[in-house]
Amino acid sequence: MNKTMPPEFYKLMEDIQAVDFVLVELSLYLDTHPDDYEAVQQFNYYVKQSKELKKQYEKQFGPLKEYGASYSTYPWSWDDVPWPWQI
């Protein structure tokens, strides 16, 4: 199954991946520097960014997460967009 998606799809996926990468790195840093106020502020900023990007993605392209973490449109639309390893 090779689906071609509009350029906005790929841009949004790239933005989500970049922000989530920053969150992983900040989480690891904060595990060893829990009192770094500025890092905590950055972490919270990127959490908000991640949620907003994922909300935008789901509004435009459908569910991003499985097992009840994302709503689905009707009819079931889980396979309407390419899987991450297909892009």
Rank of each mutant, 00 (worst) to 15 (best):
Y67E: 14
V22T: 09
D35H: 12
Y67I: 09
T32P: 00
D36Q: 09
M1A: 03
G62Y: 07
K11P: 01
K55A: 15
D20A: 08
Y57W: 10
S77I: 00
K59N: 10
S77D: 15
P6M: 02
Q49L: 13
Y46M: 04
P82G: 03
W78R: 11
T32K: 00
Y57V: 03
K51G: 11
Q42F: 11
S70T: 09
Q86L: 09
S50A: 14
L23F: 05
Y67G: 02
Q49A: 11
T4N: 12
W78K: 05
P6N: 15
P82L: 05
W76R: 03
I16N: 08
W78G: 11
Q41I: 12
P7R: 14
P84K: 04
E25Q: 14
F9P: 01
L53Q: 12
Y74P: 00
M13R: 15
D79L: 14
M5W: 03
F9Y: 15
E66A: 10
K11E: 15
K11Y: 11
E66Q: 12
E8Y: 07
V47N: 09
K55C: 03
N44P: 03
G68W: 13
M1C: 05
W78C: 00
S50E: 04
Y46C: 01
E66G: 04
Q86G: 01
L64D: 04
L28D: 03
Y10V: 04
T73M: 13
L23V: 03
Q17K: 09
Q60T: 07
K3Y: 06
P6E: 11
S70E: 05
P82D: 06
D20R: 15
N44A: 11
Y57G: 00
A39N: 09
E52V: 13
L26W: 02
Q56Y: 07
F21D: 12
P63K: 09
P84T: 08
M13E: 12
Q41V: 15
F21L: 14
D79W: 14
K65F: 15
Y67L: 08
T73H: 11
S70H: 02
Q86P: 00
D79C: 04
K54F: 02
N2H: 12
W76K: 07
S77L: 00
Q41K: 14
F61R: 05
D36F: 05
F21Y: 09
V47D: 02
P7V: 09
P84V: 09
S70Q: 03
F9N: 08
V22A: 08
P75V: 04
L26N: 01
L26G: 01
